[in-house]
Amino acid sequence: MIEVSIYRYNPETDKFPYMQKFEFTPPEREIMVLELLTLLKEEDPTLSFRRSCREGVCGSDGMSINGKNSLACITPLSDVLQKNKIDLRPLPGLPVIRDLVVDMTEFYNQYEKIKPFLQNDQPHPEKERLQSPEERSKLDGLYECILCACCSTSCPSFWWNPDKFVGPAALLQAYRFIADTRDTRTEERLESISDPFSVYRCHGIMNCVNVCPKGLNPNKAIGEIKKTLLLRKESGNELIAKSGGT
């Protein structure tokens, strides 16, 4: 028997959020936290949470599990149980819509701001824009982000300024396009985040690296963006950015 404590809030009926405790007997086999929630939802159909692929690809079920942001679908229950207790809360820093469901508008606004698509001013080639294997390898560790928001919502800088600080997830994607040799709008991309907040509010706390369920390193990408921004006036942006920010 384990004790499951879940953040509950329904703005239509609750004045304040509260923690509801459930007693639960897990099955013999290993289950993920998402399955625990699904089984609890059979007991209490009002319990709300997001889920879709249940295999760590869609990024829908990001939540705070015992204080650490993770994807419920790929987090084994046995890994996170502490003294037979588990605490489930919504991703911190974002407005709660209901129970474990958060309003991700601010997160997506920042993602939209960095223009997460390839921009190329040159004429369209006959077939496709080619890259060498070395150029392509610079995108490894960047393109795999599933936008679960675990990193951005674990970042204090994003908590305090979600409207100004782009956040680790969107900055990882910003660098994915800055580092892409097929993209020709590097200067515009850098200029759009050159203010004191967009990138420079990252103080290297590293929570983003600690929680990323895909094992990515947004902090490294942010460091590369900072380096490119700091050196671009001296040496020419295109050269530095396309050579990998070094």
Binding site: P196, Y200, L230
Partner: peptide, 9 residues
Amino acid sequence: MNGSIIWYL
């Protein structure tokens, strides 16, 4: 104000 200038300062 440019963030890089603040960083350098």
